[in-house]
Design a binder for these strands. Structure first.
Length: 309
DNA sequence: CGTGACCCTGCTCA
DNA sequence: ATGAGCAGGGTCA
């Protein structure tokens, strides 16, 4: 049986299981490329919670298989989250044809962008500042375990947790948030929760603002600068003109595209905004993943001057 | 524009 | 093997 969920054909395998035919979706690189922090490898696949839905994703010869704990009639929420309705081959073709881009494409084919719920994405990236990905994951696990609502569990498994609401994090208070290892980010998350709760920040309304204006709204929040705002705009709102520049990307762009010179921050910013075409945000994810996973020589520690014997 | 402080912890190297 | 010491997908003052 096939059902039409928006613009992507789904094959319903059972009331709780569906197949999404695609041969160009790599779960591992997508779910561990540092755009989302709540997916965990489980057996041959990946487990996570999308909004209120616990999901297990795995590969099959025919495409992506998704399984949930309760019968699902309409899978459009997952299609949206996984951006399955993107024209992937057109996106890839739009990338600039240069050596770094070719290398990045060759090393992680099937890397995809996600479209995450804005609130969860915002909190995730507020937590990300000066932290390593494993640490961010740990923070978000603690937050969800302690302050999220349990979602219907898979049989014989502990319940997954929905991401905590702003109200739940306000209840947690700064002390509760610090206990989740947020450190100096705790008051930042609290302020964001309060802004959403008292409606001085309307995350839904950002959808309709030009990227620059949406960025201005987000950076008004304490603890949210241009980098974190760009992450939220790209990973939750799909803004392709949001190109987060973090230390990895700065080192990566400099090494890959300006090997001789030492480009200024301003130069790199301009390059990032002008070089990568209509799907720049997507291209960014390829460069980032490539630099992080395949260029250990560009790690900060590797860049320290070698100690002489 | 540059610089340090901010919480905390995993990683690295002695 | 064990423990300092350091730096980590930033932001603010």
């Amino acid at each position: 049986m096939t059902s039409d969920n928006g613009s992507f054909p789904v094959r319903i395998l059972s009331p709780t299981k569906a197949l999404f035919p695609t041969h160009s979706f790599d779960l591992s690189s997508t779910l561990s490329s540092g755009q989302s922090f709540r997916w965990r490898k489980q057996g041959k696949g990946w487990s996570g919670v999308v909004g209120p839905h616990p999901v297990h994703l795995s590969d099959s010869p025919e495409g992506l298989v998704a399984e949930t704990a309760v019968p699902i009639g309409d899978w459009s929420w997952l299609i949206r989250y996984l951006r399955l309705d993107d024209d992937y081959s057109a996106i890839i073709r739009s990338f600039p044809d240069d050596e770094p881009m070719r290398s990045a494409l060759a090393t992680c084919p099937g890397l995809r962008l996600l479209r995450q719920p804005a609130w969860e994405c915002l909190v995730g990236f507020i937590c990300s500042s000066t932290k390593q990905i494993v640490q961010i994951e740990q923070c978000l696990d603690l937050l969800s375990q302690r302050y999220g609502q349990p979602v219907t569990p898979f049989p014989h498994r502990p319940p997954g947790m929905a991401f905590p609401t702003p109200a739940a994090l306000i209840d947690a208070g700064e002390v509760g948030l610090r206990a989740c290892k947020l450190g100096f980010r705790a008051p930042y998350v609290l302020a964001a929760a309060q802004a959403v709760a008292d409606q001085s920040l309307d995350l839904t309304a950002l959808e309709f603002l030009p990227t620059a204006e949406a960025q201005a709204v987000l950076t008004r929040l304490p603890g949210v600068g241009p980098k974190i705002a760009d992450c939220v705009l790209l990973f939750a709102y799909g803004r392709q003109d949001a190109f987060p520049l973090d230390v990895w990307m700065l080192r990566g762009l400099a090494a890959l595209y300006f090997p001789r010179r030492k480009p200024s921050l301003k130069r790199l910013r301009h390059f990032a905004d002008s070089h990568f075409g209509p799907w720049a945000g997507y291209a960014q994810q390829y460069i980032f993943h490539y630099v992080r996973c395949h260029r250990p020589d560009l790690r900060a520690r590797a860049l320290r001057p070698p100690i002489s014997q």
